[in-house]
Computed example of a mutant assay.
Amino acid sequence: MADINITQEHSLDPAQARAAAEKVAQKMAQEFDLACTWQGDVLRFERSGVEGSLTLAPEQAQMKIKLGFLLSAFSSSIESKVAENMRKVFAGAA
């Protein structure tokens, strides 16, 4: 198992942050075939071998991903893709 933790700072109001999180979720759903659901300010996602959450807080978004054994070999490339996507989306939405 591999754990990925990414924190992205932002200066968005709650509605803008949620819209940015939706963009991140859509991109992840396409690239990694994930099912996503909101639980308050936490976007949860999963599929076989992957589970995680994107938590929205004032001025930051925190992504936590747990990869199963097979996907853990790709953890660094997955982390860099997700981090880049979060940077683009949360900075671009400002």
Rank of each mutant, 00 (worst) to 15 (best):
M28R: 07
Q62A: 11
D41I: 13
S77I: 13
A29H: 09
R87Q: 13
A20M: 12
L54D: 02
V24L: 05
Q16E: 12
A91Y: 13
V42T: 15
A29Q: 14
K81S: 04
L71D: 00
Q39P: 00
E22F: 04
L67M: 01
L56C: 08
R87V: 11
E9C: 05
A93K: 11
A25Y: 04
R44E: 04
D33E: 08
A17M: 02
H10M: 10
F90T: 08
M86H: 06
K88G: 04
A20F: 08
T37Y: 04
Q39D: 14
E79F: 05
E9I: 13
L71Y: 01
D33W: 07
K66P: 01
A19Y: 12
T55D: 02
K88Y: 01
R47P: 04
A83S: 14
S75V: 06
S75A: 08
K64W: 05
A57C: 14
A94N: 14
A83K: 15
K23E: 09
E84Y: 11
L56S: 06
T7N: 12
D3K: 15
S48Q: 11
F45E: 00
Q16R: 13
L34T: 11
L43M: 12
L67W: 02
Q26E: 11
V50S: 00
W38F: 10
G92M: 07
T37S: 13
G52N: 05
K66F: 02
G49A: 03
L70N: 02
S76H: 14
V89D: 05
E84A: 15
I65N: 03
A17K: 12
L12P: 10
A61D: 03
V42S: 02
A15L: 10
A29L: 04
I4Q: 08
E9M: 14
R87M: 06
E59M: 09
F69L: 09
A21T: 10
Q26V: 14
A20K: 09
T7P: 05
G49M: 01
A94R: 15
E9N: 13
S77L: 06
Q62D: 02
L70I: 07
S80T: 14
L54K: 05
